[in-house]
Simulated assay, not measured.
Amino acid sequence: MKRFLAVFLGSPASMDAWKALPESERNRREADGMKAWGDWVRKHEAAFVDHGSPLGKTKRIAAKGIGDVRNELAAWTVVEAESHDAAASMFEGHPHFSIFPGDAVEVMECLPMPEG
């Protein structure tokens, strides 16, 4: 089995639109979304290597120094699957973008570190 990192993405515009919803609507969608997310996790439980977590604010470190940035990274998880396509298919219709304001999930293989 290969390991794959899944990164949940959400644009700042999507998050701003979510925050603009009435609180009652956000609460309803959040409850529906968390139930659907839990159902999705149970369906794919055997594939999880690390359930991951939501991601907080970002600092970018570059040659010129450290600064605050806003990006699309929202959460991550690590799964195992036979192939890249099999891993990707697990996220089709995921509540991250079907209920929550997330825009996409990107899935990439975790490659072995080169020796040396």
Results as ranks from 00 to 15, higher is better:
Ala46Ser: 13
Ala46Thr: 13
Ala47Leu: 05
Ala47Asn: 10
Ala47Lys: 05
Phe48Cys: 08
Val49Leu: 09
Asp50Cys: 06
Ser53Trp: 00
Ser53Lys: 07
Leu55Trp: 03
Gly56Phe: 00
Lys57Gln: 14
Lys57Thr: 08
Lys57Glu: 11
Lys57Phe: 00
Thr58Asn: 13
Lys59Trp: 08
Lys59Pro: 01
Lys59His: 06
Ala62Val: 14
Ala63Glu: 14
Lys64Asp: 15
Lys64Pro: 01
Lys64Ser: 10
Gly65Trp: 03
Gly67Cys: 11
Gly67Met: 11
Gly67Glu: 15
Asp68Ile: 11
Asp68Ser: 15
Val69Asp: 05
Arg70Ile: 14
Arg70Thr: 12
Arg70Ala: 10
Arg70Asn: 07
Asn71Leu: 11
Asn71Phe: 06
Asn71Ile: 12
Glu72Ile: 10
Glu72Ala: 13
Glu72Tyr: 07
Leu73Gly: 03
Leu73Ile: 13
Ala74Gly: 09
Ala74Leu: 07
Ala74Val: 10
Trp76Met: 04
Trp76Cys: 04
Thr77Ser: 11
Val79Ile: 13
Val79Tyr: 03
Ala81His: 04
His84Ala: 13
His84Arg: 12
Asp85Trp: 01
Ala86Lys: 01
Ala87Val: 12
Ala87Met: 00
Ala88Leu: 15
Ala88Ser: 14
Met90Ile: 06
Glu92Cys: 05
Glu92Pro: 00
Glu92Ser: 06
His94Trp: 00
Pro95His: 00
Pro95Phe: 06
Pro95Ile: 12
His96Ser: 06
His96Lys: 05
His96Thr: 11
Phe97Lys: 15
Phe97Ile: 01
Phe97Leu: 15
Ser98Lys: 12
Ile99Gly: 12
Phe100Glu: 00
Pro101His: 10
Pro101Glu: 01
Pro101Met: 08
Pro101Val: 00
Asp103Tyr: 07
Asp103Lys: 06
Val105Met: 04
Glu106Lys: 08
Val107His: 04
Val107Met: 01
Met108Thr: 09
Glu109Trp: 07
Glu109Val: 14
Glu109Arg: 15
Cys110His: 05
Pro112Lys: 12
Pro114Ser: 10
